[in-house]
């Protein structure tokens, strides 16, 4: 365990060293929060929710989205291409150590991003959660795990860095823009909302919105979808994983 943590420590350092991590995970959600809060603020976004409330539950997921669909697949495919995983194979440890360490890095980054968004919302804009905070945190972690499993699946399935880049762009941008993570879902026309409902991240965000506003909606459906995604994607990524 001590050895794993040492490995993780170094990977986390490397993780923080890349500039785009800061821009996408930390700056983007905070800037979006400022814009939405200043423009929309306490106006109603429908369904007994202000724009700030809506933005809180969605922007808190931007870090998850960036890590799951950018950091995780990019790092893993890069390490595979550079034969770093192969050199880890030629040691008493499994390459799984390295993958585990990097997934943990992404988890930590998502948490930092979420804490930052929450701090700005609470201190800067007086946000207060009406719903159950522990349930909200639970839903956030469930969303993170299930999105990470999609990222791991992409990393496993894509054979080359090129296909991985195409796939991550195809997944990342629609997920970021249309799941309601950045642009408020409530602003979408009805048709687009229906499409957005199919995005896995939307399930998490809808669940968190419902919990955070204390709305008595069917939570169970979203939870089932997220758990199912996690199970299926984890299974596929384990089945198709190649370290070389």
């Amino acid at each position: 365990m001590k050895r794993f943590l040492r490995l993780y420590g170094i990977e986390q350092k490397l993780f923080f060293r890349s500039a785009d991590v800061f821009i996408f995970n930390l700056c983007m959600p905070v800037v979006a929060l400022f814009m939405i809060a200043l423009i929309g603020g306490n106006k109603s976004a429908g369904e007994n929710m202000t724009y700030l409330q809506s933005a809180f539950a969605s922007l808190i997921c931007v870090g998850i989205c960036c890590c799951a669909f950018m950091s995780i697949p990019i790092v893993m495919v890069d390490y595979r291409d550079k034969k770093i995983l192969k050199s880890f194979y030629c040691s008493p440890c499994s390459p799984a150590w390295l993958l585990g360490a990097d997934t943990l890095c992404s988890g930590v980054m998502s948490i930092i991003s979420a804490i930052l968004v929450a701090t700005v919302a609470i201190i800067g804009f007086g946000y207060r959660m009406e719903g159950n905070v522990p349930a909200f945190i639970g839903a956030w972690f469930l969303t993170m795990i299930s999105m990470f499993s999609i990222g791991l699946m992409i990393a496993s399935v894509c054979k080359t860095a090129k296909t991985m880049n195409v796939v991550t762009s195809l997944v990342y941008f629609p997920m970021l823009l249309f799941s309601g993570a950045t642009i408020p879902y409530e602003l979408f026309p009805k048709g687009l909302q229906h499409i957005a409902d199919f995005l896995p991240l939307s399930q998490g965000i809808q669940l968190m919105k419902a919990i955070s506003t204390g709305n008595r909606v069917e939570h169970i459906y979203g939870i089932i979808v997220l758990v199912a995604i996690t199970v299926v994607c984890t299974a596929i990524s384990l089945k198709t994983f190649r370290w070389e």
Partner: peptide, 13 residues
């Protein structure tokens, strides 16, 4: 101990 052909390392390490 192993040194594989053309070893690469993590970015910026």
């Amino acid at each position: 101990g192993v040194q594989l052909q053309s070893s690469f390392y993590q970015e910026a390490i």
